[in-house]
Design a protein around this nucleic acid. Structure first.
Ligand code: MN
Ligand code: MN
Ligand code: ZN
Ligand code: ZN
Lengths: 142, 142
DNA sequence: TTTGCAATTGAGTCTAAGTTTCAACTACAA
DNA sequence: TTGTAGTTGAAACTTAGACTCAATTGCAAA
């Protein structure tokens, strides 16, 4: 099942529709292979000769998160960033000085999550593990 | 060294001043023993018969985070929450339905952080580990 | 002490991400 | 075909938080 099928069946299941605008946002979101923000989608959709309103972009992003194709990541700015959920789960090192984002994976985190959720009878749907500090280069200039 | 000494020496070190307003914010922030937001401080300071402007509250919160007495926590709302850094480091389970926050501790997380930071030569100053999903009660109603 | 000066404050203004509203439009099923 | 419920975009709205600036304060040198 590809992204398009996942999204359209998610929508159909709840009586929502797979509209051209929603498909446009889906396509554009997955043509970016790094972290992106809502504004990026707006600009790129325009550049590709299409038009989807700001409201619809925000509404569609929320749906893509709900259906699990996207995840919201938080980098300490006052607006959201998004990334694909496909591929191995990873987490972030965030540099306070230059804004650099380093991704890392760690398989023990998954076990920690399972243990904690079991203990508290909590049903997880996503997680955030972010270490904030200074990258190698910026640590020198401190 | 108590909070007041930590804060005032942090300020003095950088040529800043330990003013009555900053002391007021410090006191009020530490009289709350749970997560709080900027607005909470404003209201409580007024209720206690004092007055500190919104601008000064935000400015002081930033200083308290810089000096390590407070930490910003993110609960998926569009404004920040804060908590004390004293006591054992803990993390959060966040319920998407009722907003309940469950705190948990896990000693392996610290080791993961050390390992990752060493590998990437990253100088950590804080971290966030948040599991988002549904609490025991809300999972039923899903 | 006085004086000089940088730090600080608060009132008000501004910003911008994201949300809401609503009238027009669309898909679809009876 | 018609009824109904979902969708859209433009514009107005919301709001946390940042910024501006004139007035005030704290401190340290003279
Ligand atoms: Mn990432
Ligand atoms: Mn907490
Ligand atoms: Zn850096
Ligand atoms: Zn709940």
């Amino acid at each position: 099942m590809n992204k398009k099928e996942i999204f359209s069946s998610f929508l159909k299941l709840r009586g929502f529709r797979f509209t051209p605008q929603r498909e446009r946002v889906l396509e554009e979101a997955f043509s970016i292979h790094k972290h992106f923000e809502a504004e990026d989608l707006l600009v790129r959709i325009r550049q590709n000769g299409h038009r989807v309103s700001k409201a619809t972009i925000y509404r569609t992003l929320a749906l893509l998160i709900q259906c699990g194709l996207l995840r919201e990541v938080i980098f300490g700015e006052r607006h959201s960033h998004y990334e694909h959920t496909l591929g191995p789960k990873h987490h972030h090192l965030i540099c306070l000085r230059c804004g650099k984002i380093i991704e890392f994976t760690d398989e023990t985190i998954e076990r920690v999550q399972q243990r904690v959720c079991e203990k508290h009878r909590f049903e997880p749907s996503q997680r955030r593990f972010e270490i904030i500090g200074y990258c190698e280069n910026c640590a020198k200039h401190l």
